[in-house]
């Protein structure tokens, strides 16, 4: 009996060694781990020269009109990108409602009418304007991209300028070489542009204040660490980098002329300004009319009140948080990333 138990035990112990021996003999998994960032540019991007190459191909004038409920999926290979030209060459494309198109490219302006055009990939050498309630997987316009009401950009949109008209749902990435303008509320994940802003314009703080926050420091600011909750009183100027291992409240009109790191919650009262970068492990709340000169990062929620500006035209920054809520007119120069959810509330715009 004990011999049987012994051998049974031996068999059980040796079980993991069987696939091991097979793998040693077969050597089926030899390649190194694929690492990220190996390419200089995202290989999925469509560079300018591809646009111009396609423009050359699309010299012939023509107009293709797709009637209702037509499904088109004609593909051709151009360079590394798989693009499709719907049965012909065109300079202007009108896609009818309820049309299903796999891939579209046009040298001219593309106008997508309302309702559920399921476009896999759409490229225009000019501009694109979408109607109401379209689902767009990938949209690239060379000049202006106007995304209509209740559109969904599933993966990626790029253009020189992007206008988001109303209630856009942007689970993908929206990139603009110049501006992204929100005319109304939206939900977003990742926005990148020289300037991301609401339609309503504003100036956060006086020109003198802006200059003070914008001008780089000529000295390394001294660093102060406070190990409990702290409040900076109204109108107080703190010239240095502040690290608070608790909650921090910046009083109305107060200014921090270095970086700011907060382990708890950060409350920035109206008119308060921070020259450097802001890090927080807790929630951040800007009451409004605030100006931040550096990168703004939190692990948790960020709420920006009306007329808040982050970054400057010549100083691009990153705003990154688990969730972001923007309550009114705003300006962000650079990148706006919400890991989980980003909302621009419509009422305030």
């Amino acid at each position: 009996m004990s011999v049987v138990v012994f051998f049974l035990g031996l068999v059980m112990i040796s079980l993991p060694f069987i696939p091991m021996l097979m793998e040693i003999v077969k050597k089926s998994d030899l390649s190194p781990l694929q690492i990220s960032n190996q390419t200089l540019k995202d290989p999925r991007s469509v560079p300018d020269y591809v646009f111009w190459y396609l423009a050359h191909l699309l010299k012939v004038n023509g107009l293709i009109e797709l009637k209702e409920k037509v499904s088109v999926s004609v593909s051709t290979m151009v360079g590394d990108s798989l693009l499709a030209i719907p049965a012909g060459i065109m300079t202007k494309l009108d896609v009818a409602a309820h049309t299903k198109v796999a891939r579209v490219i046009s040298a001219g302006k593309i106008i997508l009418p309302d309702y559920s055009n399921h476009i896999q990939k759409i490229l225009s050498l000019d501009s694109i304007q979408t109607g109401v309630e379209n689902n767009l997987n990938e949209v690239h316009a060379h000049h202006l991209l106007t995304i209509g009401k209740k559109n969904k950009v599933i993966w990626w949109a790029t253009a020189e300028n992007v206008i988001l008209q109303a209630e856009a749902h942007l689970p993908g990435k929206v990139q603009a070489r110049k501006e992204i303008v929100f005319e109304n509320g939206a939900q977003f994940h990742l926005l990148q542009g020289a300037l991301i802003k609401s339609r309503i314009n504003f100036e956060s703080g006086s020109a003198e204040n802006q200059e003070l926050i914008k001008t780089p420091s000529t000295h390394i600011p001294h660093k102060l660490t406070i190990s409990k909750n702290h409040t900076i009183l109204d109108q107080v100027v703190f010239d240095g980098t502040l690290i608070v291992k608790g909650n921090l409240t910046l009083g109305k009109g107060s200014r921090v002329l270095g970086d700011l790191k907060v382990y708890g919650k950060l409350m920035v009262e109206e008119g308060a300004q921070i020259k450097g970068n802001v890090f927080s492990f807790g929630n951040i709340r800007f009451r409004g009319n605030n100006l931040v000169g550096g990168t703004l990062v939190t692990n948790r929620q960020l709420r920006m009140g009306p007329c808040t500006q982050v970054g400057f035209e010549d100083r691009k920054i990153t705003v990154s948080a688990k969730s972001i809520t923007i309550d009114g007119p705003f300006k962000v120069y650079g990148l706006l990333r919400a890991w989980k959810s980003g909302t621009i509330t419509s009422s305030a715009l």
């Binding site: 990062v297 691009k316 920054i317 990153t318 990154s320 890991w339």
Partner: peptide
């Protein structure tokens, strides 16, 4: 720190 792409 993953999301930080643009900064001084």
């Amino acid at each position: 720190y993953l999301g930080i792409e643009d900064s001084r």
